[in-house]
């Protein structure tokens, strides 16, 4: 689900469904169903998550400000390279402090669960593709990435896994190397 769709807090559900009363009910119900399906999200993370994220933002701001100061602030007449990043970093620090103070009890975070590990595996396959691309060309890593995602992360059957991975890679080969003649590293010369 898109993050632009915040979960209503408990007790606000009634209000949410009443807002769009001027629109036709059918579309409304459809939207609700779609929303409900997607709304089975992990529980909210709670104050610890809020504080952690605010602290991280604070850290980014402080590090930015410190580095920017080192680049030279200059003057208003002759702004140095560090002036603008310094201003922005200070803004970040202020916003982080505000978050620390007022954001503790927001409920828009999500707990990490066991399935969050899947995300790490998924990201790792992308990184592997990035490393292998210049070394062995894109074909083999692309097929492998397809296999990992379809078979192991997606639970597809071996047959459709193989067919889809190979066909997708072949399609990209044709598209990038022939239709668009983009110099993508590749192994098979046709």
């Amino acid at each position: 689900m898109s993050e632009t769709q915040p979960r209503p807090a408990p007790g606000a559900d009634q209000g949410a469904s009443d807002v769009d009363h001027e629109h036709d009910i059918l579309a409304e119900i459809k939207a609700e169903v779609a929303q409900d399906l997607a709304d089975e999200r992990p529980p909210a993370g709670g104050p610890a998550y809020q504080v952690a994220s605010a602290l991280f933002v604070l850290l980014v701001g402080l590090a930015g400000a410190w580095l920017a100061y080192g680049y030279g602030i200059g003057s208003l007449r002759r702004p140095g390279p560090g002036l603008w990043p310094f201003i922005v970093s200070c803004l970040i620090v202020v916003l982080a402090v505000v978050l620390l103070v007022v954001g503790r009890h927001l409920d828009d975070t999500e707990k990490f669960t066991r399935s969050s590990l899947l995300v790490a595996v998924g990201a790792a396959t992308f990184v592997a593709l990035g490393f292998l691309l210049p070394v062995v060309g894109f074909e083999i890593p692309a097929v492998l990435l397809g296999i990992v995602w379809l078979r192991f992360l997606g639970g597809e059957s071996w047959r459709s896994t193989i067919v889809i991975s190979v066909l997708t890679t072949a399609a990209f080969y044709g598209l990038f190397l022939y239709a668009l003649s983009v110099p993508l590293p590749h192994l098979i010369a046709l």
Partner: peptide, 14 residues
């Protein structure tokens, strides 16, 4: 989605 995800990923990476 299980099929769409790797294809989308490949499009974006390449």
């Amino acid at each position: 989605p299980a099929i769409l995800a790797p294809i989308t990923a490949l499009i974006t990476i390449l």
